[in-house]
Amino acid sequence: MYKRTVLIVEDELLIRIVLADTLADEGYDVIEAGNVLEAVAVLGRRKVDAVITDVDMPGGLSGLDLARMISSSDMKVPVIITSGGSIVRPEELPSDTVFMPKPYGMNVISAMVREMTAAETRKMAS
């Protein structure tokens, strides 16, 4: 059986660990990245079914930059953008991207991932 893969792009280690553990417990294969460049490297070599990224990231590229890169590619991967300090307006979001302000509940983020990956499965089946 195919195991859905979620890429978590988060520079705050504790948040990344808790989110990764939560999604792994939900049955996802989880890949972690501490910045956008690490995430781009992962996306270049692995099929990913969903991405969760923080807006403010080290290294000069933001999570919003990552979402735009994904949206402009042929990957068609849904993205959840999170932030505790930035507000991203709906018109700033690329397609297949949603914004979730921090702090968020782990049950809320897992439900969003479940919904997004289920929607992708329906798209592939039709």
Rank of each mutant, 00 (worst) to 15 (best):
V108A: 08
E91L: 08
K47C: 08
I87R: 10
A39C: 08
K76V: 07
A125R: 14
E12G: 03
E115C: 02
E12I: 00
N35T: 05
A24Y: 01
V77M: 05
L93H: 03
D11H: 09
V6Q: 01
K3A: 05
K123L: 01
S72I: 04
V79P: 00
A39F: 10
S62Y: 04
R46Q: 15
G34Q: 11
L66W: 04
T117H: 08
R68G: 08
G27T: 02
S71C: 09
P78V: 03
A119C: 05
S126P: 02
D11T: 06
V40E: 14
I81R: 01
I81H: 05
S126Y: 07
K76W: 01
D65F: 10
A125H: 10
K3P: 01
P58R: 09
A67D: 11
V42N: 08
V108D: 13
T5I: 02
P58M: 12
Y104L: 14
I17E: 09
R4Y: 04
V77N: 01
D96Y: 00
E26Y: 04
M124I: 10
V77E: 02
E115K: 06
D65N: 13
A20I: 06
G63W: 11
I81Y: 03
M100Q: 14
G34M: 06
V51P: 15
M1H: 09
V98I: 15
V79W: 04
N107Q: 10
K76Q: 12
S110P: 07
I52Y: 05
P101D: 13
N35I: 00
V88I: 14
T121D: 15
I80D: 15
K3F: 01
S95G: 14
K123I: 05
L61A: 15
S73F: 09
I15S: 06
M69E: 11
S72W: 09
V98Q: 13
L14K: 06
R45L: 12
S110T: 15
A20C: 07
L14T: 02
T5P: 09
M1W: 05
I109A: 07
K102Y: 04
P103Q: 12
G59H: 10
I15W: 00
M69D: 10
D96R: 14
P90A: 11
M106H: 07
S126G: 11
A111D: 15
V77C: 07
M116S: 08
T82V: 09
D11K: 01
A125M: 14
R16C: 03
P94T: 01
V98P: 14
S62Q: 06
